[in-house]
Nucleic acid binder design. Structure first.
Length: 339
DNA sequence: CTTCATAA
DNA sequence: TTATGAAGG
């Protein structure tokens, strides 16, 4: 979820190939949830290994990561740590929504309504600690670095972009903008198309959102953008009833800050606004990490994907062959540059 | 989601 | 070559 400021920002469409040579910190939870909700059979059943364990997240993580490497894009996955206390309510609401979706999925199946079944199933995605561990093993085997954030993954990712250790953060959520990431990539997907719940396909291409561009267009500071988000509602507070992006923008433009909005007395500013501000402006992050992209451990990938999780050896090998060809080529280029 | 096979 | 649908685990 996160904050929906899509109406307030402009994104620049890019081709995946334009991102070649860049390092990108990817919001791991956001990405894995995407895979878990989308990679399903027509009745909503996720992919599973021979032991009945869900493998949709591994399928997505493997094919996408391999393709990024092949394109010369250097991914680092950033996992969430302990959520801020203020997120508790959001987490509980999501859990309840998943249970409800689970019931509706089963109901739709009984009624034989496959379209509705798939749509409901996609909202039941759950990421457990085993799935996270499996994902980390796969990334290790692929030679892709990962980081466990002390708290919010998006905060950690944004911190790394701010420091210049990576070029951009990647997530479907806009929160990285509020956390101060200078560059955010959305729709970091391979296929240029996405199937909607309706069954229709729409073109989607990666897009870049620049924090500086957002702020200069709106003529606000990041602090003011965060204040707008608090009025609209974030993962850490309920928004003010009746206030969306337009009204939040108008209010902050006219009055300047939440203190001033409160002083005017017309809008009931959320009580916890100062704490939510601190989450976005002074988040808990770490500088203890190393970004190293290693050689792909072919045998290791096979172990995780094929031995443990029933993926086809042929398919895995075919993808790895392309990645290895690419890394051999770059190794050759760097050797050439010495001569 | 990405890949694969098949059709236009 | 591009579009579409089924399969993948």
């Amino acid at each position: 979820m996160g904050v929906d400021i899509s109406d307030l920002v402009e994104a620049r469409k890019v081709a995946l190939a334009d991102l070649s040579g860049r390092s990108i910190a990817i919001d791991a939870f956001n990405t894995l949830y995407q895979f878990l909700s989308m990679i399903r059979q027509p009745d909503g059943t996720p992919l599973m290994d021979r032991d009945g364990r869900v493998t949709s997240h591994l399928s997505g993580l493997f094919y996408r990561s391999a393709a990024l490497l092949e394109l010369g894009i250097k991914p680092v996955y950033v996992f969430d740590g302990k959520p801020p206390e203020l997120k508790r309510k959001t987490i509980e609401e999501r859990r309840a929504a998943k249970e409800e979706a689970e019931r509706e999925w089963k109901k739709a199946l009984v009624e034989g309504d496959l379209k509705r079944a798939l749509s409901k199933a996609s909202r039941t995605a759950k990421l457990d600690s085993d799935m996270i561990e499996e994902s980390l093993s796969l990334l290790d085997a692929l030679g892709i670095p990962w980081i466990r954030a002390p708290s919010e993954g998006e905060a950690q990712m944004s911190h790394m972009v701010r420091k210049g250790d990576v070029w951009a953060g990647a997530s479907q959520d806009f929160d990285a903008i509020l956390f101060g990431a200078p560059n955010l990539v959305r729709n970091l997907t391979l296929a240029g198309k996405r199937r909607l719940p309706s069954g229709k396909t729409v073109d989607v291409s990666p897009e870049v959102i620049e924090l500086a561009d957002v702020l200069s267009r709106l003529e606000v500071s990041r602090e003011q953008l965060v204040d707008m988000a608090i009025l609209m509602g974030t993962d850490f507070n309920d928004g003010v009833r009746g206030i969306g992006p337009k009204k939040a923008y108008a209010l902050i433009k006219r009055l300047g800050s939440l203190e001033d909005v409160r002083a005017e007395g017309k809008v009931l500013v959320p009580d916890e606004f100062e704490e939510v501000r601190r989450i976005f402006l002074e988040p808990e992050v770490t500088d203890v990490y190393s970004l190293e992209w290693d050689m792909v451990d072919h045998e290791g990938v096979r172990k995780v994907m094929c031995d443990k999780h029933s993926f086809s050896v042929d398919r895995i090998d075919a993808v790895l062959a392309k990645v290895l060809a690419k890394s051999d080529a770059s190794a050759q280029r760097s050797l050439d540059s010495w001569s």
